[in-house]
């Protein structure tokens, strides 16, 4: 019998992390007042298993980029490949997680986590139990979303994403609204899950330190329309410390990039 991995197992999906190729992506939003360019010639390669953080000013179009990769929208121009195949529609292998947990209030914690299975008509109570255990919410399985704290709700959202065994996890500021202590705990949780579950991660964040601590690479975007300003690979020999002097240097470097464009723009 094949070796059973310690994490959740769903045999129907190949579990290798996903690689992304974005070339010359342009995208605009069309509004009554006219169209507004949000992504301007964005090209980016993400290797399978990378954790890429996207940093940039608010409203620059980072979230739009995630929506395009998720397949929720199609780019106006450019090609977007997931493992060499064009992205045309959403797929459970590419799961997006938002800043708000957006749990369904009419489903219990357990019901919310099983959403992906319900959509595909699968029944797998063991996978649901495993996902609940993975985020440590065993005692709250029967609770309603309004009974949860912000951090717990976001952990449910995380479990709801991970039960799909995503090969790519798209994180749109998932920790943005949490208080700082919960945020630290969730950063550790996210890092642990990325290490153990084997998915590629693409995370939008406003927190430079968070990006530097979690990611293997940081991409810095300009204000809207978003262009890539810097591409900073991080190869920490071991898990970095918050007080690490190199961390402070990189932090200063990223701020310099941002300040340069903010002053001009």
């Amino acid at each position: 019998m094949a070796e059973r991995r310690p994490q959740m197992v769903n045999s129907t999906h190949p579990e290798a992390p996903l690689g992304l190729t974005l070339s010359h992506i342009h995208h605009s939003y069309h509004m009554p007042s006219g169209s507004r360019l949000v992504l301007d010639d964005v090209s980016l390669d993400v290797e399978p298993g990378e954790f890429v953080a996207l940093i940039g000013p608010s409203g620059c179009g980072k979230s739009t980029l995630l929506r395009l990769v998720a397949g929720l929208e199609s780019p106006d121009a450019g090609t977007l490949l997931a493992d060499g195949t064009p992205v045309t529609e959403p797929d459970p292998s590419r799961i997006i997680m938002f800043q708000d947990p957006t749990l369904y209030p009419w489903r219990t914690v357990r019901g919310n986590i099983s959403l992906g299975l319900d959509i595909r008509g699968e029944k797998d109570p063991e996978a649901i139990d495993a996902a609940i255990r993975l985020v440590g919410l065993e005692e709250f399985a029967a609770a309603w979303p309004h009974q949860l704290s912000g951090g717990m709700a976001q952990r449910v959202a995380l479990a709801r994403a991970l039960i799909n065994n995503p090969r790519l996890l798209l994180l749109d500021e998932p920790l943005g609204k949490l208080d700082s202590l919960t945020r630290l705990a969730m950063q550790a949780e996210l890092y642990r899950l990325w290490k153990s579950q084997g998915f590629t991660a693409l995370m939008v964040t406003h927190d430079i330190e968070e990006a530097l601590l979690l990611a293997t690479r940081v991409i810095v975007f300009s204000p809207r329309p978003a262009r890539i300003l810097a591409n900073i690979p991080l190869d920490w020999p071991s898990t970095p410390h918050r007080e690490d002097p190199r961390l402070q240097e990189l932090r200063a470097e990223i701020l310099r990039h941002l300040e340069a464009v903010m002053a001009v723009g």
């Binding site: 929720l72 959403p90 797929d91 590419r94 799961i95 997006i96 938002f98 957006t102 992906g116 595909r120």
Partner: peptide
């Protein structure tokens, strides 16, 4: 909330 639809769509609904 349109995000409710997005959550389900991203999982293939």
């Amino acid at each position: 909330d349109p995000a409710y639809y997005d959550v389900a769509r991203t999982m293939g609904a």
